[in-house]
Design a protein around this nucleic acid. Structure first.
Lengths: 201, 201
DNA sequence: TACGGTTTATGATTGCGCGCATAAACAAAG
DNA sequence: CTTTGTTTATGCGCGCAATCATAAACCGTA
């Protein structure tokens, strides 16, 4: 996360996008650094049959899409707003200026990238080793931690997952029906509970 | 890749490891930056039943294990030499000095990290969308490109993949038998050829 | 409050990769 | 040359998740 005063200093523009709006598509050239002010964005890969795999979901104060910028390749997946979102857009060359002149920010960015790598390692080994229940369990643990770290104030030790069954399935490489069935079973086994359709872990 | 004179300048040590030697285990604290001089290293996650998932294979002049260093977390997977290997070891704090004082190197490191992310995105969507043949096909294409880019001199447009069926299976999340059967079928279909057991694509 | 779209839910069927067993081919080491 | 370990190869049966179909529940909104 880069402080807003720094972003402004390097000519970042604040723009508003609607729910469902596409920010870029797979194969597009990367020209901007994006950081969310408020809202939520998903990055997704699509199969030829239209199936989705959610590479990541990003929320308030998080940036996304930097790999294509830093690695100098076209976007390997698309980005779409999950709700009305306001985000900072910083042109590529100014972004590189910013990194060059702010070692601490550069390092913080690396940290974020490395955490993303760690997450992908996790999902990869889960998908290749384990059954749906184990995969969802691990995903839930990860999501819980990551949601807690963003939100200092927690009233209960339980937390509501703000994702649909479809999204959870698309993050862990399974079909909706499998996710639904597995989550139901986990509820029966007391491994989570469902309140008004929402999953609590 | 960091030039050797720079590495020396920051007190990197050159060490030799034997085939099969473990450089660090999952859960170990990250204290060093590693860069291979010559040889080859794999990073692997293990399931409780001892199944392997190969997170990456690194060769001459490549570094590995930086995410744990930069992200400040314990290694999420282990590293093991695949052959006799000589490698540079640079203590953590000196590594950070190096980055701070060499923006171009820092950026090159980012580029490598981003390429790794791109690779993981690829494997993830392959594993969750496609059948073994498609997965191997994509993996082969990727490996071929990456081998070619390392080796300027190419005699034929075909290339021999220096990996066992087991390793290829462990990179694409399938069982050896499935990899073997699929590769055989791909040979029959003329999608690759096998010479002395080695796969050529 | 009626309506279209999304999300959750559940049943029936099937195909494909896993897991296990066995063995041949090959390489490395003594 | 023999031995031991690794890699490739192939058959067989099972189980589980994908797939297809259908419907209920829920939600925003016109």
């Amino acid at each position: 996360m880069i402080a807003e005063n720094i972003l402004k200093q390097y000519n970042a523009q604040l723009t508003q996008v609607k729910k469902g709006q596409v920010l870029f598509n797979e194969g597009d050239k990367a020209n901007y650094f994006f950081q969310i002010q408020t809202g939520s964005v998903k990055m997704v890969s699509y199969s030829d049959e239209g199936q989705e795999f959610i590479q990541g979901i990003f929320g308030d104060a998080e940036s996304f899409g930097e790999p294509a910028l830093l690695g100098d390749f076209v976007y390997p997946s698309a980005a779409m707003a999950l709700k009305p979102t306001s985000l900072w857009r910083l042109p590529k060359d100014r972004f590189f200026d910013l990194l060059k002149e702010n070692f601490d920010i550069h390092l913080a960015l690396d940290k974020a990238l490395c955490n993303r790598l760690k997450y992908k390692n996790l999902v990869l080994s889960e998908i290749s080793f384990h059954d749906p229940e184990h995969r969802l369990n691990t995903l839930f643990k990860y999501l819980k931690e990551s949601l807690l770290s963003k939100n200092e104030l927690v009233l209960s030790h339980h937390i509501e997952l703000p994702f649909t069954r479809q999204q959870l399935a698309d993050m862990s490489g399974m079909r909706v029906e499998t996710a639904i069935r597995t989550i139901k079973r986990m509820e029966e086994e007391g491994k989570l509970f469902i309140k008004e359709g929402k999953i609590h872990v």
